[in-house]
Computed example of a mutant assay.
Amino acid sequence: MLRLNVSMKSSENGGAGTLSIGALAARFGLATHVLRHWETMGLLHPGRDAGGRRRYGADDLTRVATILILKEAGLALNTIGSLSATVDRTARYKILRPVAEELRSRIAAAQTSLELIEGGLNCEYEDVTQCPNYRRLIAERVGPEVRPESQ
């Protein structure tokens, strides 16, 4: 879910089934100041109880989970804010396309790293640099040999 603007505020359900800022933060392993910061950035819009304390409902849980997933994907908070503020498909594409390309690149690099590590784990040679898989991966990284120019 990329759309963060949910019309119902937490306070509209009368406070039933809502969480305090501390309970919401604990649920996601966050510090409460993180949620307050996201609120100042316009990413969260918690309801308030009669005493003025923040109350978070199901929609807020969805927003926090979405923000965390998008941050893990590499999006900055201001980008997440821009994304949540738009319903235009073209604008969403312009925001997400470069992020998707960067994520694909990171995944490819992680796959190569994992292949090297697993090759080391499965290598039967005393010296891992002698393993055929290791040598292939290193050769791919180094590229073609550079030959001295003839004079």
Rank of each mutant, 00 (worst) to 15 (best):
E115Q: 15
M8K: 15
A16N: 14
C131M: 13
S105C: 11
E115T: 15
G14A: 12
L70A: 03
D88R: 07
E72D: 06
L35P: 03
T86Y: 02
N5M: 12
W38R: 07
Q111N: 15
G57I: 04
G143T: 05
N122T: 13
G29F: 02
Q111F: 10
S11E: 13
L68I: 14
P46D: 05
L68A: 05
R104Q: 04
A23C: 05
M41Q: 12
G47Q: 01
G74P: 01
S11H: 15
I21Y: 07
L43R: 01
P46Q: 01
W38F: 07
S82Y: 00
E140C: 07
N133M: 15
Y93M: 07
T62Q: 09
T79K: 02
R135H: 08
G57F: 03
A76S: 08
L103G: 01
P148A: 15
I138Y: 13
I107K: 08
G81I: 01
D59G: 09
G14F: 13
D88Q: 09
L30D: 04
G15A: 13
E126D: 09
L2S: 07
V99I: 01
V87N: 15
V142I: 13
L121G: 14
M8T: 07
A26Y: 03
S10T: 14
T129V: 04
S10R: 15
F28T: 06
L103K: 00
L114P: 14
A25V: 00
V99N: 01
R92A: 05
Y93I: 08
A100V: 01
R136A: 14
E39W: 06
G143A: 13
E140V: 05
L77D: 04
A25N: 02
E140Q: 08
H33N: 03
R136H: 15
G143F: 05
A25S: 04
T129S: 05
D127R: 00
G42H: 07
E149W: 10
T129Y: 05
V34C: 08
D59V: 03
L75S: 00
G51H: 08
E101W: 04
G143S: 08
N5Y: 10
N13W: 12
N133R: 15
R63W: 00
D59L: 02
G14P: 15
L19E: 11
S11K: 10
R135C: 09
S105Y: 11
G119R: 11
R141N: 12
G81C: 09
Y56F: 01
T40G: 12
V64D: 03
H45G: 08
L75D: 04
S113G: 14
W38L: 14
I107F: 07
A25G: 02
A109R: 15
S105V: 11
A58S: 13
E72V: 11
C131H: 10
T129C: 06
I21S: 04
D88E: 04
E126Q: 06
L83C: 04
P148T: 11
A23G: 06
S113I: 13
I21E: 06
G17L: 13
D127I: 01
Y134A: 14
M41S: 08
C123F: 01
V34I: 14
G29M: 05
P98N: 02
